[in-house]
């Protein structure tokens, strides 16, 4: 098993109010699979992903990624984990505005042990002609491609995508989903994706439905539909 989450709990306390965000979540994802986490706002999707990505801690429970229990890692080890194994794609791209496309990708390749060739990655995400442009000069879809290129250039074991199509129109969203599908196939990268959009679940191997901090549905998709055929 590539990702194994068992009885993960997380709560926040603001003043006297304690909010339980994750109430004993358990889930699994195999290597090379695409997993989709569905759920409304405030269901705990992002918190779950942040803990799997090593940028947040759970209160109790276990998170094991490729045999390593990341809940036991200290801050330095977690940095190493994110540095080597995890790629992030955000809803609003989070590109560094005053770095060119090439330089934005370099931000990550610069600290990777064996990064992919930047030009090859740019070709793979379909923006090889935009290498010297600044993010502001690109469309939303192009910016998300840059974000994906940046995430995959380190050849991560796991790509975590937080609403990758949330800010995009239908056509662009589909092309981004196709791209993620290609990445998954070409590099064998496991992908865990958060989305509101239930239609996207059709392209996943595994679907998790989260509600109020609990997994209410954990299903294996027997009828995977390629991204290009997904409609909503």
């Amino acid at each position: 098993m590539f990702i194994e989450v068992s009885n993960l709990k997380k709560s926040y306390t603001t003043g006297e109010i304690r909010t339980e965000v994750l109430k004993g979540v358990s889930m699994r994802l195999n290597k090379g699979e695409i997993g989709v986490i569905l759920g409304p706002s405030g269901s705990g999707k992002s918190t779950l992903m942040n803990i799997i990505g090593g940028i947040d801690h759970g209160d109790s429970g276990k998170v094991i990624v490729e045999g390593v229990e990341i809940t036991n890692l200290n801050a330095d080890k977690l940095t190493d984990y994110r540095r080597g194994d995890i790629g992030f794609v955000f809803q609003f791209y989070n590109l560094v505005p005053n770095l060119t496309v090439g330089e934005n990708i370099e931000v990550v390749s610069n600290i990777s042990k064996s990064p992919l060739n930047i030009d090859e990655v740019l070709v793979a995400v379909g923006i090889s002609d935009k290498k010297h442009r600044f993010p502001r000069e690109l469309s939303g879809g192009e910016q998300q491609r840059v974000a994906i290129a940046r995430a995959i250039v380190k050849n991560p074991k796991l790509l975590l995508c937080d609403e990758p199509t949330g800010a995009l129109d239908y056509q662009t969203s589909r092309s981004i989903l196709q791209l993620l599908e290609q990445v998954n196939k070409k590099y064998g990268t496991s992908i865990l994706m958060i989305t509101h959009n239930t239609a996207i679940a059709a392209m996943a191997n595994r679907v998790f439905r989260l509600r109020s901090g609990e997994i209410v549905e954990d299903s294996i998709n027997q009828m995977i539909i390629p991204a290009e055929r997904i409609e909503w």
Partner: peptide
Amino acid sequence: TISLFKIFGYR
């Protein structure tokens, strides 16, 4: 940007 660097695993 600093926050992003931290997420990406910069020391």
